[in-house]
Design a protein around this nucleic acid. Structure first.
Length: 324
DNA sequence: AAAACCCCCAACCGCCCACCA
DNA sequence: CTGGTGGGCGGTTGGGGGTTT
């Protein structure tokens, strides 16, 4: 059925009587809406629509303004920091998109929702598990998110190295910088629960995290983890950080060997993760896990059958160990 | 080259709640 | 209490552009 030809169901009788326009907004409509709001402000969307000379529902005007025309709307790719925040906040609140959006200045609930549906759920689908399953949640928490943290820190370190020739070592805290659309600047200190981001956004100082203790997939203490492959970690420092309560294993306890043998979840990573990893020539540890480059080429071009096989392997591994 | 397929995201929908007369 | 209205939310759709076959 022609979407635009469909009769409009709307609560507002007055609007039912009008010949309302639907579909994509034109530049002229945008201009009208922006002009009107600049003069009269937001709110009263139904009457705003009429007074602005727009043949649109109030809802449509509101949505267009909030999701697109608002001057502080941030456009463009979701950054690593934003991805991390989305995963983190979603793990706490579920599909509370508007609530999550509050912590990502400039991003709309719609955009976050779209990100989740297109990117995150895609990976769940690839893993052939439900996006709401504990298994997938754990995959995010123990594999995907740590990888994001790693990448954020790596980028941050690169930026710092480019900015100065001096280096900090030893007791330097591990932090990453999150820049927002408003050029707000938040830092996250992975070694300190009372971090700036937690204070500013109130997201990192509660007890809601799925910890290794309450997770359905047990993250074992030392004895188990030391059995896992000991791939050189490009930046093992991040493991020593904690998000909330023991969110990540402490390196002093488990060392860099976070992941079990055969459980490095490349398919749980974003595509750009894989690309970035591939591009880092010093990351031949990946090759070490999976064999020489010649035989690991296929890993970068995972077909469904390969993934199925891989996933079954992981399932088997989990069943055998009951842990990562 | 073009058809088929896939992905992204702007826009819409239905439902709900708060507020007010 | 009730009905009307405004506004917010999560879920869904479909057009368009990119990619693959």
């Amino acid at each position: 059925m022609d979407e635009k030809g469909r009769s409009l169901k709307n609560n507002n009788n007055m609007e039912d009587e009008m010949d309302l326009k639907r579909g994509p907004w034109t530049a002229e409509e945008d201009f009208k809406l922006m002009n009107y709001i600049a003069t009269h402000g937001e709110g009263r969307w139904n009457s705003l629509s009429r007074f602005a000379g727009l043949q649109r529902t109030g809802k449509s005007c509101r949505l267009r303004w909030l999701n697109y025309l608002r001057p502080d709307v941030r456009r463009g790719n979701i950054t690593l920091e934003e991805q991390l925040l989305i995963l983190e906040l979603h793990s706490r609140w579920g599909n509370r998109w508007s609530k999550i959006a509050q912590y990502l200045p400039g991003r709309t609930d719609n955009e976050i929702k779209n990100y989740w549906r297109t990117r995150v759920q895609k990976h769940a689908k690839q893993l052939k598990c439900d996006v709401n399953s504990q298994q997938f949640k754990d995959t995010m928490k123990y594999l995907w998110m740590p990888r994001l943290v790693e990448r954020i820190q790596s980028a941050s370190a690169s930026a710092a190295a480019a900015a100065t020739t001096t280096t900090t070592t030893g007791s330097a805290t591990t932090s990453s910088c999150i820049t927002t659309s408003n050029n707000q600047f938040m830092t996250y200190d992975y070694n300190n629960n009372n971090n700036n981001m937690g204070q500013q956004f109130g997201v990192m100082s509660n007890n809601d995290y799925i910890t290794p203790e309450n997770s359905s997939v047990a993250v074992s203490p030392v004895s188990d983890l030391t059995e896992y492959y000991s791939a050189p970690n490009p930046n093992p420092e991040y493991y020593s950080g904690q998000m909330g309560n023991s969110y990540y294993p402490d390196q002093s306890l488990v060392g860099p060997e976070l992941f079990p043998d055969n459980y490095f979840d490349y398919s749980g990573l974003l595509d750009e993760d894989l690309t970035a990893m591939q591009e880092q020539s010093n990351l031949n540890w990946f090759e070490n896990i999976n064999g020489p480059a010649s035989s690991s080429d296929s890993l970068w071009n995972i077909g469904e059958s390969d993934e199925d096989f891989w996933f079954l392997q992981q399932q088997q591994q989990l069943n055998n160990n009951g842990s990562f």
